[in-house]
Each structure stands twice: as structure tokens, then as C-alpha cells.
Amino acid sequence: MKEIIQLLMAGAGSLGFAILYNIRGKKLWVIAIGGIAAWGVYLLTQQLTGNDYASSFTACVALTLYAEVMAIIFKTPVTVFLVSVAIPLIPGAPLYRAMNSLMHGNVEAFAREGTYAFLFAASMAAGITLTTLVFRTMRAKRYHRRHL
């Protein structure tokens, strides 16, 4: 039950950020579903591997594929879907907690949370970049160079 509520809230969060980014129409629903799916993949891989970084990497590979496919269907830049769908995974809370610990002079917690935020973001970035590269290479005949 807790997981289902969290999944729904992940979708709502993605939807909210999509409105903030001025995205319109049907794409909003595509993004909300993508947000739910992205967090779902994250939770599943976390169950399987028990490692947060591996899970965020896997979730980002999945959501980038989703965003690339949707970008082709809607004929829009990939960024439009990519950033909003990734919202539930974005390590905003660890980043805040790291700075919060620093503010309280707790250097040990700062090191722990800061490392977590950095590695989490890095594994996300790695997942996204890798998938984009593979996807673009496979479609290289149609896409001559990267175009918006």
C-alpha cells in the first residue's frame, strides 16, 4: 500500500514539474505515467539488487528509452520528456540533507549524504548518457547528427 501511494505521488510530482516547465496537452499524461514507471523500475531493481546506485542507473536506462520513443512519437526534443520523467529520481532530498548536515556542523553526515547525492546523480547521468548514445548510434542512419 505504501509503495502504491509513493508511485502515485511520483507521477503527480512529474506532472507538477512538467506544468512548471510549460509542457502542454497529452504530453502531460505521458510524463505522469513515465514518472510512475520510472519510480516503479527503481523500486523493483532496488528489491532485486539492494543497491541504490545500480537501481538509479537501471531506472535511468529505462526512462531514457521511454523518453526517446515518446520523443519520436510526438516529434519533440527528447529533453522535454527526459527531464520531467526523471523528476522522482532526482536526488534533491539527499542534496538538501547534505547541506543541512553541513549547516549543523555534522561533517560525518555531510560526507555520507554528499557522497550519496553525488554518486546517485552520477549514476543517473551515466544511465541517461549511455542510453542516449546507444539509441542515437542505432538510429544513426536517420539522425545524421544530434538534432533537437
Partner: peptide, 23 residues
């Protein structure tokens, strides 16, 4: 606060900065 923090905290910029460096 965490709900409000998510509105303000530059989490997307933080992740994108690493993406920029990777690419």
C-alpha cells in the same frame, strides 16, 4: 519542508551538470 524544498532545490541542475560533463 521537503515538499517545498523540492520546488526550490536545484536537483535537476545538479544531475544535468553531471550529464553535461559526461557528454
Amino acid at each position: 519542508s521537503i515538499g517545498n524544498i523540492m520546488l526550490l532545490i536545484p536537483g535537476v541542475a545538479f544531475t544535468n551538470s553531471l550529464r553535461d560533463m559526461f557528454s
